[in-house]
Design a protein around this nucleic acid. Structure first.
Length: 506
RNA sequence: GGCGCCGUAGCCAAGCGGCUAAGGCAGCGGAUUGCAAAUCCGCCAUCCCCGGUUCGAAUCCGGGCGGCGCCUCCA
């Protein structure tokens, strides 16, 4: 069966064929660690995760690599390459403020002026969030998640090659620039042309800075700057790398000169990915860097662009702690919410959507739990021709149509299956991709409670009190106790068999 | 102004030229219940607009309109 993807590079939906049969190499742009990652970032990371799980589900041997940008790039790079304030310093200042106001636990970062400590703090936070949301690659750190600061040598090697073969030059200010005019295909990915870029740059960049470049779109590979907080020795003086070079250097180091798939948010198409292609191909001489480029659309929050000003800017921890719904959200619910719609359509993140997702996640888990009880947990490997598996596979094979896949699973899970063991096998197969029912025990060894099952003795005692009151026909007391449990975020079921509660997942 | 993606019910969303347009949430009616919740049964859209191709289009083509992104750091 054909696997189809909409390739940004060709602007067409085309059949996928990996470079090496049965193997896929994937590179995805990861987070910068100057702050906590937000849900928009995670939509993109989860897309890469889903893609990787899909290929594994299809029997491919997958190697997925992601970067962590822990080099402090500059706040005003757009005005003049390397201008403004170092983002690590901004992060340090914010951390100090947060420590004062108690926003960050004291001692979390001993010395905020040490950029490596700041980076380590936010890297840990990212990994923690990623693991909660079932991001497989987050469990492989430090393998497969590479930090830019650990790969300066790879970057220097690539820059050297680019200078040597004429794709890069040292300008009179000592900065090493990539010459976009040396690479005829610059602009192919984004649909830009050098002429258009030249015009478009008018009035937006500082003339004096541009004068040192051969073309306004030439971008920085290395900037000598001994005063910079994070700096490394190089043939062009002590300084720091440009922000595009890390991805090229690390992807090629880990995955080879040509990779199968490169992913990222749609905003990265230009300039970041355009520049990556230019650097990588300039260095390798290959006719491609990534054969397929996949880009995730932006996420909106309640119909609006997420911004700190509008107050609709949410980190993963904000959502999990209940900042959106008013009660804690189970990580599987957030995972489901962020993967349920097609990656090439804008998704609208809403409190209502989260609650809806919680309903579906609960339903799927209930279904799996029932099957486990019925079979004692013994599943039968489901035949690939099973209608649900087939539909699921076909939907995902069509440009990773998760919604279509869910459309096959949800109606099916509403009905009692004929063969429970086979059904359980189907669920387990599908869950290797979705990762929500349940959150896989292999990837969540500890720390995440079973879905909705309540162990709190005080709560269970209240349930017994309700039973007692109802037995006495003291309905006023029973109703009052029930009302309190509901207020605390529990779903309460009273029946002849006694009162039981389930934790709301969102 | 240039490049690209998207547009199916209140919300999410399937659909890839042909049975009465999946499914979920919400809503409504009913069963059940001390009352609820949960559960079960039933109801709930002609597919952004216009034109074309076709025996037949939500599905293909052309033109609009709308949303979003990029062209400047950003998933």
């Amino acid at each position: 069966m054909a696997i189809l993807f909409h390739n940004t590079l060709t602007k067409q939906t085309e059949p996928f064929e990996s470079i090496r049969r049965g193997r896929v190499t994937m590179y995805g742009c990861g987070p910068t660690v100057y702050d906590f990652a937000h849900i928009g970032n995670f939509r993109s990371f989860l897309f890469a995760d889903l893609l990787r799980r899909y290929f594994e589900f299809m029997g491919y041997d997958v190697r997925q690599v992601m970067n962590i940008t822990d080099v402090g790039h500059m706040t005003d790079d757009q005005v003049a390459d390397g201008a403004g304030e170092d983002k690590m310093q901004v992060a340090a200042r914010k951390l100090k403020e947060a420590k004062k106001s108690g926003g960050v636990e004291a001692g979390a970062v001993e010395n905020p002026d040490d950029p490596y400590q700041v980076a380590a703090y936010y890297t840990d936070a990212f990994l923690e969030d990623g693991r909660k949301l079932g991001l497989k690659v987050a469990f492989e750190y430090p393998r497969n998640i590479l930090r830019a600061t650990q790969h300066i040598d790879d970057m220097l090697g690539l820059i050297e090659r680019l200078v040597r073969n004429g794709h890069a030059y040292v300008a009179e200010d000592g900065v090493v620039y990539y010459s976009v005019e040396s690479f005829p295909e610059y602009g192919r990915l984004s649909g830009n042309t050098l002429d258009m870029l030249r015009e478009g740059s008018g009035g937006r960049v500082m003339e004096e800075d541009q004068a040192k470049k051969r073309h306004p779109s030439d971008f920085m590979l290395w900037k000598p700057d001994p005063a910079h907080v994070m700096k490394w020795k190089s043939p062009w003086g002590e300084g720091y790398p440009g922000w595009h070079i890390e991805c090229s250097a690390m992807a090629m180091r880990e995955l080879g000169d040509v990779i199968d798939i490169h992913t990222g948010g749609e905003d990265l198409i230009f300039p970041h990915h355009e520049c990556e292609i230019a650097q990588s191909r300039g260095g390798s001489g290959e006719t491609a860097f990534a054969r397929v480029w996949l880009h995730v659309r932006f996420l909106l929050v309640e119909g609006e662009k997420m911004s700190k000003r509008l107050g609709n800017f949410f980190t993963v921890r904000d959502v999990l702690q209940g900042k959106v719904t008013g009660r804690p959200v189970h990580p599987a619910v957030l995972r489901y919410e962020l993967i349920k719609s097609h990656y090439r359509a804008n998704m609208n993140f809403t409190a209502k959507g989260l609650v809806d997702s919680a309903g579906n996640v609960l339903k799927l888990n209930r279904f799996v739990r029932q099957l486990e009880e019925e079979t004692g947990g013994a599943s039968v490997e489901a035949d690939a021709s099973h209608p649900v598996l087939r539909e699921f596979r076909e939907a995902l094979s069509d440009d990773l149509n998760v919604a279509g896949g869910l459309a096959a699973v949800l109606p099916w899970s509403n009905k009692k299956p004929k063969d429970a063991r086979e059904a359980l096998g189907v669920c387990r197969s599908i869950n290797r991709v979705l990762g929500v029912a349940p959150l896989e025990p292999t990837t969540f060894p500890q720390g995440v409670e079973q879905f909705g099952i309540v162990h709190d003795p005080a709560i269970l005692e209240t349930c017994r009190a309700i039973d007692a009151a109802r037995a006495d026909r003291d309905f006023q007391t029973a109703d009052e106790l029930r009302r309190r449990l509901v207020e605390q975020g529990f779903q309460v079921q009273t029946s002849r068999d006694g009162t039981s509660v389930q934790q709301q997942l969102a």
